[in-house]
Computed example of a mutant assay.
Amino acid sequence: MKTNTLFTFLAATLIFGLLTGCRGKKVAPVSERIAKVWTAQKVDENNTTVYTRGAASNVRNYATFRLDLSKPPTVEYTEFDGNKFTGQYSVPSDSRLVLSSLNPAPTGTNGTIEFTISDLGDNSVKLTRTTASQKTGNTTNIYTLSNP
């Protein structure tokens, strides 16, 4: 009888372990996963690559570009030319990032810049600006960012 009881206990423990242990790891929401400091890895303006980190010749230097989302809801945003802005940010959906109340207001933005979020990984994200940037000649910019 002891062998049957032991066998039943072990079988039940194994089945319970398989059922509870096989659940996938819960993925944190986009708003938590994007809350990091991001720098430019690659930038496209109107579908033309103008910057790649470490490249010998770039059309524009985005080495100082920085998007600090590490202290929600505060954002610190540094454009390619070194101009710095502070404000608030929100992630109203898994595919939208909105920077608002930016001070001073970046050229032509009224203090708000919106991006479409795609390809969010642990250490990288792709952001597409939803409005043209006056600072780069009214181009639509796609930022491939990394979190070193």
Rank of each mutant, 00 (worst) to 15 (best):
Glu32His: 13
Thr144Cys: 10
Gln134His: 07
Thr39Leu: 15
Asn58Ile: 13
Leu19Ile: 12
Pro72Ile: 05
Asp68Leu: 07
Thr86Met: 11
Thr20Gly: 09
Thr144Ile: 14
Pro148Val: 09
Ala105Arg: 12
Asn141Val: 08
Leu10Cys: 13
Phe9Leu: 14
Phe7Trp: 05
Pro92Gly: 14
Lys84Thr: 07
Gly17His: 08
Ile142Leu: 07
Ser90Cys: 03
Thr49Gln: 13
Arg23Ala: 10
Lys126Ile: 10
Ala55Asn: 00
Ile117Cys: 04
Ala35Met: 07
Pro92Val: 09
Asn138Met: 04
Glu114Ile: 09
Ala55Glu: 01
Gln88Pro: 00
Asn4Gly: 06
Ser90Tyr: 01
Lys84Gly: 01
Leu120Met: 07
Thr74Lys: 15
Ile117Glu: 03
Ala132Trp: 00
Arg60Glu: 12
Lys135Arg: 14
Val37Asn: 07
Pro29Glu: 10
Ser95Gly: 09
Thr3Phe: 07
Thr128Ser: 10
Asp119Glu: 08
Leu6Gln: 15
Thr107Val: 08
Thr39Tyr: 04
Arg53Gln: 11
Tyr62Gly: 06
Ala11His: 06
Arg66Ala: 09
Val98Glu: 03
Thr5Arg: 10
Lys126Arg: 13
Asn58Asp: 05
Gly21Arg: 06
Thr8His: 08
Pro72Ala: 10
Lys36Trp: 02
Thr107Lys: 12
Pro29Trp: 01
Asp44Phe: 05
Cys22Val: 03
Ser146Lys: 13
Thr64Ile: 05
Thr74Phe: 02
Thr48Met: 15
Pro104Lys: 01
Asn61Gly: 04
Thr13Arg: 05
Thr140Val: 09
Gly87Leu: 01
Leu145Thr: 02
Lys25Trp: 01
Asp44Asn: 15
Thr3Ala: 07
Leu120Tyr: 01
Gly24Met: 11
Arg66Asn: 12
Pro148Glu: 10
Pro148Gln: 05
Ser101Pro: 00
Phe115Lys: 12
Cys22Leu: 04
Lys25Glu: 06
Arg53Ser: 12
Thr13His: 03
Ala105His: 11
Asn83Glu: 14
Asp68Thr: 05
Thr140Leu: 02
Gly24Arg: 15
Val59Cys: 06
Leu97Thr: 07
Thr52Cys: 02
Thr131Met: 09
Thr116Phe: 02
Thr130Pro: 01
Lys42Arg: 10
Tyr62Phe: 13
Thr5Val: 06
Phe80His: 12
Asn4Thr: 13
Phe115Gly: 10
Glu45Gln: 13
Lys36Gln: 11
Gly21Ile: 14
Thr49His: 02
Ser31Leu: 12
Arg60Thr: 06
Thr49Tyr: 01
Asn123Val: 02
Ser90Phe: 01
Leu97Phe: 05
Lys135Glu: 15
Ser100Thr: 15
Gln41Met: 08
